[in-house]
Computed example of a mutant assay.
Amino acid sequence: MAIKSRSVTSDGCRVMSLEEFKQWLKKFDSDRDGRISSEELSRAIRTAGHHFFSRRRGKEAVFSADANHDGFIEEDEIEELVDFAQKNLGIKIVAF
C-alpha cells in the first residue's frame, strides 16, 4: 500500500493530486466509517516510509487537522491534513 504518485521531486517529496491523496487515505479506513483515526493514520504514515515515531505523528496529524476535536479526520478536515502532510511527511499535493 505504498504511496503511488505521479512523480518524486529532487528532495524526495512524493507529488500527487488532492484526489489521489484522498484515495490513498481511504485505503487505511479499516472500519469503513469514512473517517480516519490516529491509529489508521499511523499505519498510513508507516507505509509512506516514516517508520520512526509513526504513532506519535499520527496523533499529531489528527490533533492538528481535527477541527471539531472528535478524534477523527473527516472529509471536511482533509485540507488541514494536507497541510500537515506537506510539512511533515514529504508529500506534495498539487493541482493536476
Rank of each mutant, 00 (worst) to 15 (best):
E19R: 11
K87P: 02
V94G: 15
F53Y: 05
R6N: 13
E77H: 02
Q23E: 13
L25Q: 14
W24S: 11
H51L: 15
G34Q: 08
L81P: 01
E80W: 02
S42Q: 04
Q86V: 02
R14M: 08
E74P: 02
F63I: 15
I36M: 05
G90P: 01
S7N: 10
F52L: 15
T9K: 15
I91P: 11
H51D: 05
S54L: 11
K26F: 04
I78M: 05
I36V: 12
A44L: 07
A85K: 00
S17W: 03
Q86M: 14
T47M: 11
K4W: 06
L89A: 04
F72R: 13
D66S: 06
I36R: 04
E77G: 00
K4F: 10
L41R: 01
E79Y: 05
V94C: 10
R14A: 09
A48S: 09
F96N: 05
E19A: 13
T47C: 11
D29E: 01
I91M: 09
I78G: 02
H51M: 13
L89N: 08
M16C: 13
T47P: 02
R32C: 11
I78K: 10
L89Y: 03
H69S: 07
T9E: 15
L41Q: 00
R6M: 08
F21K: 08
R35Q: 15
W24T: 01
A2R: 13
L41I: 00
A44I: 03
R14P: 01
I36N: 07
H69L: 09
R43E: 12
F63H: 12
D29W: 09
E74M: 08
K92H: 06
V62H: 01
R14I: 00
S37E: 08
S64R: 12
I73D: 02
R57M: 10
G90T: 01
R46Q: 12
A65I: 02
W24V: 01
D31Q: 10
I93F: 08
K4Q: 08
S64L: 14
K92P: 05
E20Y: 15
F63V: 08
N88P: 06
G90S: 06
R14C: 04
S64E: 05
S30T: 05
A95C: 11
D31P: 03
F28Y: 10
S42F: 00
E75S: 09
K26L: 12
C13L: 02
G34L: 14
S54R: 02
E20L: 10
L81E: 01
R14F: 10
D66K: 05
H50Y: 11
S64A: 15
S64K: 14
R43G: 13
R6F: 14
S5H: 11
K26H: 10
D76R: 04
F53G: 07
I93Q: 03
A2W: 04
E74F: 04
R56S: 14
D31F: 11
E60F: 08
R57N: 13
S17Y: 03
A85M: 05
Q86P: 04
K87L: 11
R55Y: 14
V8F: 06
A65Q: 04
D83S: 07
F84S: 03
D29V: 04
D70M: 11
A85F: 07
I93A: 14
G71H: 02
S42N: 00
A48N: 03
K27A: 06
G34F: 07
G34S: 08
F52P: 04
V62Y: 03
A65S: 12
A85I: 00
S7F: 05
S17C: 10
Q23M: 14
K4S: 14
A44K: 07
I93W: 09
I78W: 05
R6C: 10
